Simulated scan of single mutants.
Amino acid sequence: TNSPIFDQQLAVNEYWKQINGTVMLPGTNRAADRFARASFYVDAIPQTDDPRSALASTFSVIRNVSVPLGISTPDEPNISSTRWRTVVDHKRTLYFFESAMTPNTFWVDVASMDLAEGTPVRRLGLGPNESTVYSGDSTDQFERAEAFTFAGA
């Protein structure tokens, strides 16, 4: 989430842990409320070794705490629509992505990519207005690109 700072998020979360998410959870689109919901649900979903079930459960938590597309709060500019949801399967080195603009999920198999120093820079282009649609394993859809320079802090 965006704000407040992490230490404050944890303090607010401690309050909600005492209430118990089965009794009541905060429901606004404020970051602290979304953090409290995510904290409760991530501990409430079934713990499993089945990667498909774990992925589905994790995405369901992320969807539950996302800010719906098109929502804006003029008095709170740090609250904006969730555009992307990402889940990483560290054991299988798969990165899963879901755009708010498309009805599907796609993934990238990092283990099959050549990430050695000196290999060409590649990117997964989104097209104008995020119009490119990916589905399933999209690892081979990366195209050569120019490297960009970080602006720094």
Rank of each mutant, 00 (worst) to 15 (best):
V23H: 10
S112H: 05
E14S: 07
V133C: 03
S53H: 02
A11W: 11
P68E: 12
S72C: 07
I19D: 00
Y134Q: 02
D140R: 15
F142P: 00
F6G: 07
N129R: 09
F142M: 11
Y95Q: 02
Y134A: 07
S99A: 12
I71S: 10
S138H: 02
S138K: 01
T1I: 06
Q8E: 08
F96E: 06
F96N: 08
G125K: 08
A11H: 00
F142D: 02
V88L: 12
V121N: 09
I5D: 09
T132Q: 01
V23L: 10
P4I: 06
S80A: 11
R92G: 04
T48P: 12
L25N: 02
D89V: 01
R83I: 05
L55A: 02
A11M: 09
I45E: 00
E130W: 09
K91H: 00
W16A: 01
G136A: 08
R63W: 05
R34C: 08
Y41C: 02
G125W: 08
K17I: 13
F142N: 01
A151W: 11
T139S: 12
D137A: 09
G70K: 06
W16K: 13
D114A: 11
T1W: 03
V67G: 01
R92Y: 08
D43V: 12
A44D: 02
A153H: 14
L25K: 04
K17P: 04
F97K: 10
L69R: 06
S135R: 13
F35Y: 06
R37D: 00
K91E: 03
K91A: 08
R144K: 14
E143L: 15
T22I: 09
R122H: 15
R122P: 04
T132N: 04
F40D: 00
T102Y: 00
E130I: 13
S81T: 08
E143R: 14
I19T: 11
S138G: 06
P103A: 13
I5T: 06
S60D: 13
G136W: 02
L126V: 06
P128G: 04
A111S: 15
A111G: 15
P46I: 03
A116G: 14
S53T: 11
R34N: 04
E146C: 07
T86C: 05
W16T: 00
Q18Y: 00
S99V: 05
R122T: 15
F59C: 04
R63T: 01
T1V: 09
Y95F: 06
D140E: 13
G127V: 14
M24F: 07
L69M: 01
I79H: 01
N13H: 02
W107C: 13
A100L: 09
V87T: 00
M24N: 13
P68F: 12
E130G: 14
R123K: 15
A147I: 03
R85N: 07
S138D: 03
A31W: 03
R83C: 04
G118A: 07
E117Q: 15
G125C: 04
D109C: 10
L124M: 14
V42K: 13
P46V: 09
T93E: 03
